[in-house]
Design a protein around this nucleic acid. Structure first.
Lengths: 174, 174
DNA sequence: TGAATTTTCATACAATGTGCATGTATCATA
DNA sequence: TATGATACATGCACATTGTATGAAAATTCA
């Protein structure tokens, strides 16, 4: 999985072959297909582990915060930090939706962060219905993702974070 | 290109083979590789045509509008309408970034719409710098994309559009 | 302890797909 | 009419994927 991660990050899912992966890992394809159903399954395992780390970072950073608004701010920065690990954003935000589909992507990428965002929104917008809240969460998490991707691709960190936090702040100010 | 579009939409880029495409089109692979450099090049041509249509729809809908704020509202709805054509959002928003990369994706997906969004933001936020404006445009266009994708996947159209327009409205109200 | 069974892999193979090279017919042009 | 360019069709070399087969190690169990 470490070898696969490195190659998926460097060359993308499609351009990474299983022979290459097993060569880097020092095993054979037989071992690979014994532990994983297929190439996509290996990819899923790699990304799930990666996403779990991100979720844990966010969780750790916001555990002791009571104010939902502050939790969103702090959690956002934690998210951007976690997603700045080289290759991680490409893995989770570009390849995962295309390879595993958007359903799995949402279920995987933002287990914790998305829930916290939703909670923060619910707190800021007490008169919003469940559907509206869900839509808001969905849309804003896409904005968070793009921000993380932009930062990872070299955009100015401060500028993007300020812009993103400004959008959330204004969206939740009533 | 019509045959390829149908298959790319139905099965995704990766799961569509060139033999399948040419069979559906009634030609041979030789003809395909005469007109296109490779499979990705065909995909690029299909998506460029698709994106051009979207840009034209937005342009037509907003041509005679003077108020930038109204142009954003009307243009947004036009965008969501255009992206509701079956398969189009999957093509442009899921496969394109993964296959062609995010650079080509931004250059292709939102030729017109993105420029108009930026213009509207510049009008609403006259004291914003170029970098901030660019970040804002980038982030919000990701939110627009997610909205289009959600609607195409069956989410409630009104709820998502309201949420999205609300975000833009609040982001631009100063 | 020895047999049976499951787990863990390595090897070999079949199927498929991609890109290119080669050959050919049509068409434009000088 | 000779020449070159264009538009294909056919066939091949190579890579990749998934699976089937079989062996070795580990585990279970009598």
């Amino acid at each position: 999985m470490d070898a696969a991660r490195a190659l998926f990050v460097a060359k993308g899912y499609a351009d990474t072959g299983t022979p290459e992966i097993v060569a880097a890992a020092g095993v054979t394809r037989g071992a690979l297909y014994h532990h994983f159903a297929d190439k996509a399954d290996l990819f899923r395992a790699v990304c799930a582990r990666e996403a779990e780390v991100v979720g844990k970072v966010i969780d750790d950073a916001t555990r002791d915060l009571d104010d939902p608004a502050q939790a969103i701010r702090v959690g956002s920065v934690a998210y951007f930090d976690a997603m700045s690990v080289p290759g991680r954003s490409r893995l989770l935000l570009l390849d995962v939706p295309a390879v595993l589909g958007r359903d799995e992507a949402t279920g995987l990428t933002l287990g914790e962060g998305r829930a916290q965002l939703r909670e923060g929104l619910a707190d800021a917008l007490p008169d919003a219905g469940g559907g509206e809240l869900e839509a808001m969460t969905d849309i804003l998490s896409a904005a968070f993702d793009r921000t993380a991707l932009a930062i990872a691709e070299g955009a100015d960190r401060r500028t993007y974070i300020d812009a993103m936090l400004g959008i959330v702040e204004r969206a939740t100010a009533r």
